[in-house]
């Protein structure tokens, strides 16, 4: 019985991992076009990490790096071919032209810090 429960819990844990990291969506912060959004880079994450904007809007992203780890020193928008250096404690701003609808991911160079810009 004990063995069955442990196995069941393990399978449930695997299901949870798949659901949590792949199938469910993290909290998304919605932004109006004219607003600039500040993204704090700290403790291994971008906050907010997921941002939603409307189609046809300019996006102003202010990255403020508080994390001294060298892993945080660059933010890469692979789909847009943009890499931004993030000096520690200095606000770096990225103004993006209106984008076509879709999800544009951004991450550190090693894909550990991750976020996404959703154009709806």
């Amino acid at each position: 019985m004990m063995s069955f429960i442990v196995n069941l819990l393990a399978v449930a844990l695997m299901g949870f991992i798949v659901w949590w990291f792949w199938l469910s969506r993290a909290k998304v912060q919605q932004v109006k076009g004219s607003e600039a959004i500040e993204i704090i880079v700290k403790d291994g994450v971008y906050s907010p990490a997921n941002i939603e904007i409307g189609q046809g809007e300019h996006v102003t992203l202010n990255f403020l790096r508080r994390d001294p780890s060298p892993c945080a020193e660059k933010v890469v928008f692979s789909e847009l071919g943009i890499t931004l250096d993030l000096p520690l404690g200095e606000r770096q701003t990225l103004v993006l032209e209106p984008l076509t609808p879709g999800e544009y991911r951004f991450s550190c160079q090693m894909q550990m810090y991750r976020g996404s810009l959703i154009v709806s």
């Binding site: 990291f21 969506r25 993290a26 403790d43 291994g44 994450v45 990490a49 090693m110 991750r114």
Partner: peptide, 12 residues
């Protein structure tokens, strides 16, 4: 913990 809350997992 912060990554987990954001449905993300990393080296940490």
């Amino acid at each position: 913990w912060k990554a987990f809350k954001g449905h993300n997992a990393n080296m940490d």
